[in-house]
Design a protein around this nucleic acid. Structure first.
Length: 502
RNA sequence: UCCCCGAUAGCUCAAUUGGUAGAGCGAGCGGCUGUUAACCGCUAGGUCGUAGGUUCGAGUCCUACUCGGGGAGCCA
């Protein structure tokens, strides 16, 4: 922003002085001889107070009719006022209207998901999306900072690739001058060749998966950071991951307390999230899922949900019984809004009540050898107050490149990191198979074309070393930290299965 | 791909057992010197998602389709 304009985030340094702000009208209220214009400038919100007589009469009338999101510059004196948002406000002396806006579709009232996604290009201006955007920025900055400060070298891996990293079915195919190529699912395989040059590397960019998943934790295009380290073991990887995540959280707490508060995130719980995290093996996790402890936990949860449901229903019927004639219009309005909110929560509670026995059944009958399902992860995640590592999954359930445990060939040296309180997986990682012949066998078992992996096998022929790494999903991390139900809020322009808005 | 729920004004939602369509917000006009989703008064605004069917009569019941939401499988 131009130097002639002061930004809202540094108003406290200009107390008593005259400044000019440049931004957009977030909302306005008028009260006869005084108007309150809430200005948004990208760094924050500021209430600008326009008093009749302190500005030209014509301007005062013009401002009364100025629409939401009109662009303008406001000149005035900065003063502290407790009644004002952020503690400071502007006593206005002059306003320049740059471009008046009329009929801005996103009003300060509530809107539905579909409507907001259709207006994503405008919704980015709202407080909610702004706070998430600021936190996402901090998360990405922390990711780069941590890795750069710890000796990792950035390697840009290709977005167009011939090799399959994860599942064949979930590849986006593109026509590359007549022959097929795929959008990358992971930079890992290329990263493994770079790690033999630099020792510690990472890649960071968009990743594409054509999974037919319509859930709150899936996007078809998402951002993932993948560190890869040579001469490391599984314990070393876990330590790296927990220090990494702890650092990201510390940075967000340091830079974005206000945003976290606005979003109603669980700051107390984030403050507790420091290394070491919990460590469970897959086998231990299966034992927990099948145990009486889980049965009791879910039964308790069900009871609590039913309690909640009853309380909600009581409250709803009480509100519905309110005598219509006795109360003022604004009270009716408030009650109506509350009812909508309560009914939404009630529907959610019903879904949870419905799912609880299904999840209990799935957990109780879990057989060793299957991959953990979403509900299983959620249960484990809900039982803990800090992130949980789950390690040593069965070989059959996992990707071909994961290194088999030499002490137990049935399992691989891998790990998932589950965020607590039901958020679920944010990291997946493993040691990589570094034995040439074992890797050839795995590629054949997975029916992959060995021709495509010749270069990858070379890494096991010329000075193979134990190495491993992991991928951290940026949107999932942001969703966890900001307490968002759906990760589509955590990327500016989400790409979902069969649905791209703008 | 499967299961559940939904679609009524620009937005968020009402409409008893089937009986001629309602409110708030937003928009427009007016009032109010301290508002915080301000408040008060007036005005405009609708082919009830689409196509069939049942009925004297359908926003309401039935069928199909379209779109959206939630969940499952799979995953970061």
């Amino acid at each position: 922003m131009d130097d002639q304009y002061t930004t809202i985030n540094c108003l406290s340094q200009h107390q008593g002085k005259e400044v000019t702000l440049a931004g957009w009208l977030y909302k306005g209220r008028s009260s006869g001889k005084v108007q309150f214009l809430v200005l948004r400038d990208g760094t924050g919100l500021c209430q600008c107070v326009v008093e009749k007589g302190k500005v030209p009469g014509e301007l005062f009338e013009q401002l009364k009719h100025l629409g939401q999101e009109s662009s303008l510059t406001v000149t005035g004196t900065v003063r502290a006022d407790e009644r004002s948002l952020g503690g400071y406000e502007l006593a206005v002396t002059d306003v320049q209207i740059i471009s008046p806006a009329d009929g801005y579709p996103i009003t300060p009232k509530s809107h539905g998901v579909d409507f907001l996604l259709k207006h994503r290009h405008l919704h980015l201006r709202s407080q909610h999306q702004w706070c998430i955007g600021k936190i996402r920025h901090t998360v990405i900055d922390a990711i780069r900072r941590f890795l750069n400060d710890n000796g990792f070298v950035l390697i840009d891996t290709p977005i167009l690739t011939a090799t399959v990293g994860e599942e064949q079915q979930s590849l986006f195919e593109v026509d590359y001058f007549g022959s097929p190529l795929y959008l990358t699912q992971t930079g890992q395989l290329h990263l493994e060749s770079a790690v033999m040059s630099f020792g510690k590397v990472y890649c960071f960019g968009p990743t594409f998966r054509a999974e037919k998943s319509k859930t709150r934790r899936h996007l078809t295009e998402f951002w993932m950071v993948e560190p890869e380290v040579a001469f490391i073991d599984l314990d070393g990887l876990l330590e790296l991951a927990e220090n990494f995540v702890s650092f990201i959280i510390a940075q967000v707490l340091q830079n974005n307390k206000n945003e976290l508060e606005t979003l109603d995130a669980d700051i107390t719980s984030l403050e507790k999230t420091k290394a070491p995290f919990y460590r469970l093996t897959y086998t231990e996790t299966v034992d927990i899922l099948r145990s009486r402890r889980t049965r009791d936990f879910l039964a308790g949860q069900l009871k609590e949900l039913q309690n909640q449901k009853q309380q909600l229903e009581t409250k709803i019927s009480e509100l519905e019984k309110q005598p219509a004639s006795q109360i003022k219009q604004w009270q009716k309005d408030k009650i109506a809004a509350e009812l909508i909110e309560l009914r939404t929560v009630l529907t959610e509670t019903d879904t949870k009540i419905e799912n609880n026995p299904k999840h209990a059944e799935l957990a109780g009958e879990f057989r060793w050898g299957k991959d953990l399902g979403g509900s299983d992860e959620t249960i484990i995640s809900q039982m803990h107050d800090k992130p949980i590592f789950v390690t040593h999954y069965p070989k059959e359930a996992k990707a071909f490149y994961m290194k088999a445990d030499r002490d137990n060939e049935k399992v691989v040296l891998n790990f998932d990191l589950l965020a607590p309180a039901g958020f679920g997986e944010i990291i997946g990682g493993s040691m990589r198979e570094d034995d040439h012949d074992l890797l050839v066998a795995r590629i054949n078992e997975h029916d992959l074309d060995i021709e495509n992996y010749k270069w990858y096998l070379d890494l096991r022929k010329y000075g193979s070393v134990p190495h491993g790494g992991f991928g951290l999903g940026v949107e999932r991390t942001v969703a966890w930290l900001t307490a968002q139900k759906h990760i589509r809020q955590c990327i500016p322009f989400p790409r979902m299965m069969d649905k791209v808005y703008i």
